[in-house]
Measured scan of single mutants.
Amino acid sequence: AEKTGIVNVSSSLNAREGASTSSKVIGSLSGNTKVTIVGEEGAFYKIEYKGSHGYVAKEYIKDIKDE
């Protein structure tokens, strides 16, 4: 099942092309942005936001229960 997560940073969080800190940054998400978690790979979540996919470090995403 898809989960919703909240970007848990004070400034912004980089979204990357792949599940690695050396992957190209494809965008950034500001704190408290809601994202859909579609998968996980190592220390990263694969997320969907406004129709695009990217990878973000798990430690900066807070899971919330689907309402």
Rank of each mutant, 00 (worst) to 15 (best):
G51R: 03
A1F: 14
I6A: 02
L29G: 00
I64Q: 05
K24A: 11
G39I: 02
V7I: 09
I26N: 03
A19N: 04
I37E: 00
E67P: 12
V56K: 00
A43V: 08
E40H: 04
K50S: 07
E48M: 13
K65F: 12
I6G: 01
S10Q: 11
E2K: 15
V25Q: 04
S20N: 11
I47W: 00
K65V: 12
G27E: 03
A57H: 08
V7P: 03
S30L: 14
D63K: 09
S12C: 15
S12Y: 14
T21K: 10
T33G: 04
D66H: 11
E59S: 07
K3W: 15
E40Q: 08
F44S: 01
L13R: 01
T33Q: 10
S10N: 11
I26A: 02
T36G: 03
N14I: 15
S12Q: 12
G27A: 08
A43K: 13
T21R: 09
G51V: 02
K46F: 05
E2R: 15
R16V: 08
V35W: 03
E67R: 09
G18D: 11
S11L: 10
V9L: 07
L13K: 02
K24R: 11
S30K: 14
G42D: 06
S30C: 13
E17A: 09
V38I: 14
N14P: 15
L13A: 13
Y49D: 01
V56A: 01
S11K: 10
A19C: 08
Y55Q: 00
H53I: 14
S11H: 14
G51S: 06
G54Q: 04
I6W: 12
V35H: 01
I61Y: 02
G42I: 01
N14V: 15
E2T: 15
G5H: 03
Y55W: 12
V38M: 08
K62H: 09
V9T: 12
S20P: 02
V7D: 00
E17L: 05
E67S: 12
T4A: 06
I6P: 01
G51Q: 06
A19G: 04
G42K: 04
S10Y: 09
A43R: 08
E41N: 06
T33L: 06
S23H: 08
V7A: 02
K65A: 11
I47K: 01
R16Q: 10
S28E: 12
S12N: 09
V56S: 00
H53S: 06
E17C: 11
V56P: 00
A19K: 04
V7K: 02
T33I: 06
G31E: 09
K58D: 00
D66E: 13
E2A: 15
D63A: 10
N32M: 10
I26E: 04
I64T: 07
S11G: 15
Y49R: 00
V25A: 06
E40M: 07
D63Y: 13
T21E: 14
V56F: 01
V56Q: 03
G31K: 13
V35Y: 02
V25R: 03
S28W: 09
K65Y: 10
H53W: 14
N8P: 04
V9H: 10
T4W: 12
S12D: 08
G27D: 04
K58L: 04
G5A: 05
K62F: 08
A57W: 08
K50D: 09
V56G: 00
I61T: 00
K34R: 11
N32P: 05
V35K: 00
V35A: 00
Y45Q: 01
S52W: 13
T4P: 04
Y55E: 01
T36V: 14
A15C: 15
K65R: 13
N14C: 15
S22E: 13
V35R: 00
V7Q: 02
K50F: 11
E41W: 06
V7F: 03
E41P: 00
V25E: 04
V25S: 06
S20Y: 07
E2S: 15
S11D: 13
I6S: 04
R16I: 06
G27T: 06
T33V: 09
S23T: 06
K24Q: 08
S11I: 11
Y55D: 00
K62G: 12
K50A: 11
K34G: 04
K65H: 12
V25M: 05
G31N: 15
T21Y: 14
Y45L: 06
K50E: 11
S12M: 11
Y45N: 01
K58A: 05
K34P: 07
S28K: 12
I37Q: 01
T4Y: 14
T33S: 11
E40K: 03
E2P: 15
K62L: 12
A15L: 15
Y60L: 07
G42F: 02
N8F: 10
F44E: 01
S23I: 04
K34L: 12
K62Y: 09
I26Y: 02
K50C: 12
S12R: 10
I47E: 02
V7N: 03
G54N: 01
I64P: 06
V7W: 03
E40Y: 03
V35C: 04
T36Q: 09
N14Q: 14
F44L: 02
E59W: 08
S52E: 08
A57Q: 14
V38C: 09
G31A: 14
G5S: 03
G31S: 13
E40R: 01
I64V: 12
G54D: 00
K24E: 07
S28D: 05
V25T: 07
N8S: 11
K62R: 12
A19R: 02
I6F: 09
V25W: 05
Y55F: 11
Y60R: 03
N32Q: 10
I47D: 01
F44T: 01
I64F: 09
D66L: 13
I26Q: 02
S20D: 12
E48D: 07
V25D: 03
S30P: 15
H53F: 15
I61V: 08
S20C: 10
E41V: 10
G54C: 08
D66K: 09
S28Y: 09
E17G: 05
E48H: 10
G51D: 09
D66Q: 12
E67V: 14
Y60I: 03
I6R: 07
F44Y: 12
G39H: 02
G18P: 04
V35I: 08
T4N: 07
S52G: 15
K50V: 05
T33E: 10
A1H: 13
A57M: 14
N32C: 14
V38T: 06
Y55T: 01
N8K: 12
R16L: 15
A19T: 07
I64E: 06
R16E: 04
Y45C: 05
T36Y: 13
T36A: 08
G42Y: 03
I47N: 05
V56C: 04
V56Y: 00
E59D: 07
G18R: 11
D66F: 14
E17Y: 05
D66T: 14
V7Y: 02
E48K: 14
S20Q: 06
E41T: 07
V7C: 06
I47A: 01
E59T: 07
G31Q: 11
E41H: 07
K50L: 12
G18A: 14
A57T: 05
K3L: 09
S10R: 09
S30R: 13
G18H: 14
G39P: 00
D63Q: 11
S52H: 12
V56D: 00
I61H: 05
Y55L: 03
S11M: 10
D63T: 13
Y55A: 00
I26V: 08
N14Y: 14
G18V: 07
E41Y: 09
S23E: 04
E67M: 13
F44M: 03
E59G: 05
F44I: 01
Y49F: 14
S12F: 14
K24F: 05
S11Q: 10
G18N: 10
I61F: 05
I26S: 02
Y45R: 02
H53A: 07
A19P: 15
N14M: 13
F44K: 00
S30I: 12
G51N: 07
N8C: 15
A19D: 03
S20K: 05
I26R: 00
I37T: 00
E2M: 15
D63M: 15
V35T: 00
K24L: 07
K50T: 04
R16A: 04
S23W: 03
E17I: 06
E17H: 05
K34F: 10
N8D: 10
T36C: 11
R16T: 13
T21L: 14
E48I: 15
K58E: 01
A15T: 10
G42E: 07
N14H: 13
H53C: 08
E41I: 08
S23C: 11
Y45G: 01
F44P: 00
K24P: 13
I6Y: 12
A1E: 09
V56M: 01
K34N: 05
G42C: 06
V9K: 07
V7M: 05
K46R: 10
A43S: 11
T33N: 04
G51E: 07
E48F: 11
E67Q: 13
E40A: 05
G31H: 14
N8T: 11
S28I: 13
I47P: 02
E40V: 06
D66A: 11
K3S: 06
G27W: 14
S22A: 11
V7L: 06
D66V: 14
N8W: 11
L29E: 00
G18E: 14
G27K: 03
A15K: 01
N32T: 07
G54F: 08
G31Y: 12
V9W: 05
G54H: 04
E48G: 02
I47L: 02
K24V: 07
F44V: 01
N32K: 07
A57N: 09
S22H: 11
N32H: 11
Y45K: 01
G54P: 01
A43I: 09
V9M: 07
Y60G: 09
S28N: 09
